[in-house]
């Protein structure tokens, strides 16, 4: 299995883009500027992410998941 690579190893943050409301809570709390958010498009910038999970905790509608196994490439 190939995994996406974060700054600190395997990427474990998984945004479910089709369930997202694009509200920006996650972008506001991200210490690494590792989330790209457009009008109706969102994704992690893998090489900046440190898997800190602050975006997971601050998502009001549970569309960012912490995946210990790693996010498949």
């Amino acid at each position: 299995m190939k995994y996406r690579q974060a700054k600190t190893g395997k990427l474990m943050i998984d945004i479910l883009p089709d369930k997202c409301d694009y509200c920006g809570c996650c972008v506001g709390v991200c210490p690494e500027d590792a989330i790209e958010l457009k009008e109706a498009e969102i994704f992690i910038i893998d090489e900046r992410c440190t898997n800190c999970a602050k975006c997971v905790w601050s998502c009001p509608i549970e569309v960012i998941k912490f995946n210990k196994e790693g996010v498949p490439a």
Binding site: G24, V27, G28, V29, C30, D33
Partner: peptide
């Protein structure tokens, strides 16, 4: 650019907010 502001941080200001 709102709660999701990135303009400030690109300019070197500390803008991210404690969760």
């Amino acid at each position: 650019d709102g709660v999701e502001s990135r303009v400030g941080r690109w300019a070197g200001l500390k803008t991210y907010i404690d969760f």
